[in-house]
């Protein structure tokens, strides 16, 4: 019930850049907002790809070491396999009328969820504020994250 959710808050950490790893973070964030829970998403390490303008439309599905993919790891490592898997997954998502990652980020932003990028990861990957999508609210440090996440439940994906 919303009355109970009024004080709830979730902090979601997105640290991987695979299509299958970014969506859960975004869907959880969106579902939180839809349930009247405050939410923010912190993108770090490879998760930065999801909020980088040049990468957001080209996220892949992790196949190597993914036992559930049904494909032997040695084949998952073949060049092009991940692109193939990603395009298959995207096709299925279109059939389900799931928004793309970019649309999801926009929906999140519009619904009042806040998106943050990790400062250290930005330096590591040599990215600047201009490389990120306009929906990203700020570039923050781990300490800032804890300040923001005060009283929040933290979800690591």
């Amino acid at each position: 019930m919303e009355t109970a959710n009024n004080k709830r808050k979730v902090a979601i950490i997105c640290s991987h850049g695979g299509l299958d790893e970014v969506y859960p973070a975004l869907i959880l964030g969106n579902a939180a907002r839809q349930s009247g829970i405050d939410a923010f998403v912190f993108f770090t390490f490879w998760g930065l790809d999801a909020i980088t303008t040049s990468k957001v439309d080209h996220l892949h599905v992790n196949l190597a070491g993914n036992a559930a993919s049904g494909m032997p790891t040695i084949l998952g490592g073949l060049p092009g396999m991940e692109t193939l898997a990603a395009s298959m997954m995207k096709k299925q998502m279109t059939e389900l009328d799931l928004p793309t990652v970019k649309e999801m980020l926009q929906i999140l932003d519009e619904s009042g969820a806040e998106l943050y990028a990790c400062e250290l990861a930005m330096k590591m990957f040599k990215r600047t504020r201009e490389d990120l999508l306009p929906q990203v609210k700020d570039v923050i440090t781990a300490g800032d994250f804890y300040d923001l996440a005060e009283g929040a439940q933290i979800i690591f994906t």
Binding site: E2, N5, N6, R33, Q34, S35, G36, Q106, I107, E110, S111, G112
Partner: peptide
């Protein structure tokens, strides 16, 4: 309406409200 407008009109849990 944009998602934003929906949240402006129904700030808490819009779809359910």
């Amino acid at each position: 309406l944009a998602t934003k407008d929906i949240y402006t009109l129904f700030p808490k849990a819009p779809a359910r409200t």
